[in-house]
Design a protein around this nucleic acid. Structure first.
Lengths: 364, 364
DNA sequence: CTGAAAGCGCTTACAG
DNA sequence: CTGAAAGCGCTTACAG
């Protein structure tokens, strides 16, 4: 070892580092930095890891050389020594394309220049072994943490499995399912109630509801909040004016066809996402019903689709990109002390009603 | 070293491996496998890397123990020794959400159980330093390879930069821009011609075209193929019946508004993606024009949107998921000899016209 | 067909 | 504030 070191420095002669073009960008190692600055690699390591135990001058000298050589520590080597990687996993189960992509953009916003990268991991939560497959993924990649998106974020067994193997996670969900630092809460119930208040205040008394699948927590919250909101204002939503959709366009069509055949016909429909609301448009068009003249429609998400529909859709704004950004940020931040963590409040995101052109007072 | 080994095996006593629960799943190392099977770790390494230089019985014994302990080699350690990672990068510049997500699903189809993971890397090709940022990403992560999606796949400077640093890539593009093993070719010109042939055969003589941005190769190919196809059949498309859109819904609306104000008014519009075609629907609706009665519309992509529109959109089917799958597969496969590589044919994907309800003979 | 030694580029644990 | 030694879990280069 004591022999090879000098030999290497002769093989790659670097007298004046400022003149040096022999080291290709991104190929310098901690040993090069240590050798050229005349310190041990441990000291360089301290600078890499922001240790306060380095003399300011030494630190400056090292940082300057790193910058000059375009040195960045090798995440694999660092990871091997740390026994974990610099990868964040995003785990999800088939929401809409817009939802996934915006969530990814948000997470990447937070990860930019952090040295962490995003590894995507869609899965099928209806499969028996999906938890095991996520566990294997997290374990093998030694993930720094994972972001869980509905509906997998609502699965307590998944969360338990991740805790058991010591993998950090942040869950994005309708309600607080975990301690503060593990949660971004979208408060869907509140949004459902807001939709109800709005439509009731316009004068609607006969309403229809198209929910997501029963196994989604958001279905309980959005739908439940809507029904509650109506009840509080003295309007009842009969059980047969609710249709269980699948958060898909086609199920929105089917739901609207079911509801619009009712007598009395609802004058307003709340669809629990924009895709289904678009389906309601199609069904209404086919029946020759005009929106909002004959039927008011309110959606949920405020995806690009909402402003593309004609008339533009009144909907609940969900800041998806922001959710992704916050979740990733929480994974990067240092863990608070366990006792604080248990009691600290989760991040609350407040959904907002966006009134556009698909809703008005009912006729007559 | 020779002292620690026996001590470790006493610290974790493993008499009969089948009874052993001391080694937590996914925590065994190459040393455990070597020790418990009584071979050197080099031999275990040979099994991991499918070397033929292992006695079949030895191999079986090792494989059996690996399976039993749930052992998988640590990708970080392997990567550090190999000087590359087991990560595939997907590089793209803001296409539609459906496009991105399907491409990701496709790539993941090919990567499943391969030991490779997908790292997503959106970027902004209008930024000066984007090539440098992709280069840093590939270098720092020591990517096994990257998948380039339009429009970044069309950037020769990016491709050159990647070649220079020795990072493998597969480009998905309209035309062959590289040697066979680096290309998945979507043959957009052919598709544009097919759209032209179809509309001309219906009897349309006055047509409109809404393209993507000029800097996209697909614009040249789809638009050019369309114009060529019409010309070959004796129909001319005047320059002012072409509108340069931006592959967005809004630009589709603007393009249709421009074209539908023309006199004579086109009886058919070819929009170079489905999003813009949806914009054409909106503009037509606003003007009280019925589709396909007053206006035939043909799109491109066959995204879910196409069958959701009403009437359902006639469009060119692009098998996006399949493109992603093929590209990833090509990155995983062994490199052919350089001389073969240069001459071998690229993967050709044949776009297919899907006739739905948005097109018919012109009136009168 | 098999293995001992050295190394990939970092960090931890310890000593000063 | 600084460093020498050992180690993370693998592979390469060499020897047999």
């Amino acid at each position: 070892m004591t022999k090879t070191a000098p030999r290497r420095s002769r093989a790659r002669p670097v007298q004046d580092p400022s003149q040096d073009t022999a080291l290709p960008a991104g190929k310098a190692t901690i040993n090069d930095i240590a050798r050229l600055t005349g310190v041990s690699k441990k000291t360089v390591s301290r600078v890499i890891n922001d240790s306060p135990l380095v003399h300011p001058e030494t630190r400056e000298k090292i940082l300057a050389l790193m910058k000059q050589l375009g040195y960045t520590p090798d995440p694999q080597a660092r990871g091997l020594a740390f026994r974990r990687s610099f990868l964040i996993g995003m785990i999800y189960d088939n929401p809409t394309a817009q939802y996934i992509v915006n969530m990814q953009y948000g997470a990447l916003d937070a990860l930019r220049d952090s040295g962490y990268e995003l590894v995507v991991h869609p899965c099928d939560s209806t499969q028996e072994d999906y938890i095991d497959s996520v566990r294997r993924f997290a374990l093998q990649q030694k993930l720094h943490g994972v972001i869980l998106i509905p509906r997998v974020s609502e699965d307590e067994q998944l969360a338990a499995a991740l805790r058991e193997i010591g993998v950090r996670y942040v869950r994005i969900a309708s309600i607080p399912l975990d301690a503060g630092p593990q949660m971004v809460v979208t408060q869907d119930r509140q949004a459902g109630t807001e939709a109800a208040n709005y439509l009731e205040s316009l004068g609607h008394r006969t309403l229809g509801l198209i929910t997501g699948p029963r196994r989604y927590r958001s279905t309980i919250e959005r739908g439940g909040g809507f029904v509650e909101g109506l009840n509080e204002r003295g309007v009842e939503l009969p059980a047969d004016y609710t249709y269980e959709g699948g958060y898909t366009f086609e199920s929105g069509v089917a739901g609207a066809e079911y509801l619009l055949a009712k007598s009395p016909r609802p004058t307003a429909i709340f669809a629990c996402n924009d895709e289904m609301a678009a389906g309601v448009y199609k069904a209404a068009m086919r029946r020759g019903l005009s929106i909002p003249g004959d039927l008011s429609v309110v959606g949920y998400d405020d995806s690009p689709l909402a402003s593309q529909l004609w008339p533009a859709l009144t909907t609940i704004h969900l800041p998806i990109r922001d959710l992704g950004r916050q979740a990733a940020q929480m994974l990067l931040s240092d863990e608070p002390a366990p006792d604080e963590a248990a009691t600290s409040a989760p991040r609350l995101v407040t959904p907002q009603l966006v009134v556009r052109d698909s809703s008005q007072r009912p006729k007559g």
